[in-house]
Structures are given as structure tokens and as C-alpha cells.
Amino acid sequence: MIDPSLACFLEEGLGIHLGVSDAGLEPQGARAIAATVDADGAHLTVYLATVAAARLRPALQSNGRVAVSFGRPIDDRACQVKGELVGISDADAGARPAIEAQWQGYLTNLAQIGIPRAVFAGWTMWPATAIRLRVTALFEQTPGPDAGARLP
């Protein structure tokens, strides 16, 4: 279960990556652009540029198990959410402002560590695909000896 405090962190505009693996145990991954946590804390929706989601879709549909890493560049606080696929759909236009706000928050974070926004001007954000997961486990990932420890 994602508690409200962790949900705030996950939705603040972070570096997000989604990892999957196909039936042949070949790992794959892509950059995601935003995430939202359901009020129940048991479900997470991760938004990917549709060009990225297309690459992962076969593995997602064949395996269904997903890992999502979240990292804040300015202090490297990070965690990982493990989950199982509930559904894949086109992101609703109504969700776009919230997605864009998170994305801009992430780019601002990168700018704070000296990476100019112009570097990411070519990164795709829209159209986006929503990948809805049922959360199965949470892990600490901030670099250090506790990285990998299970979060309550």
C-alpha cells in the first residue's frame, strides 16, 4: 500500500522508469513521464509516451509483471514500486495538465543540477499511454546500504 506521504513523493515530478521482461526473460525498459496513485493506495497509473509504451506492450501483455523506479535527481531519493498489470489505455486528454505539470517538475529538478532544459527539448511526452497497475510491493532505492529494503 502506498501511503499518502509516499504518494506525494511519487507524484511530485520525478525521474520515472518502467521495467518489464518478456517471456524469454529479456529485460526491457522505458522512461515514463508521470504517475498517479489511487486514493486507496493499492493502484498506480504510470504514463509513458505512446512511442515508448509501444515498445514495451508485447512484454507487458505476455508477462504482466512490472517494476517502476522513481528518483529525484536533486538528492537521489529513490524508490521502486512492483506491480501487476491491470490495464493499458490511451491517456485521457483531461489528465494531460497533471501529467505535464509532473513532467515540468522533473525538468526543473534536472535544471537544478545543471542539466539545461534544451537537452530534453526533443523528448516526447504526448500522446501518452496509461498503464494501470495493482501494487504488490514497495522498495527503498535511495543509494546506500538500505537500497533494496522493502518499504512497509
Binding site: 521482461s21 529479456e26 526491457q28 525498459g29 509483471r65 523506479s69 535527481p73 542539466i115
Partner: peptide, 19 residues
């Protein structure tokens, strides 16, 4: 300069994503 992302997978098919 920019963090890399590392994707692996256990023998039973559970993926992992880490910086």
C-alpha cells in the same frame, strides 16, 4: 552526467528497475 537506468529480471520473470 545523467543517471543511467538498469533493468534486470529474476529467473521467475519479475523485472527490476534501478538507477
Amino acid at each position: 552526467l545523467l543517471p543511467a537506468q538498469f533493468f534486470t529480471c529474476s529467473a521467475d520473470g519479475v523485472p527490476n528497475a534501478a538507477y
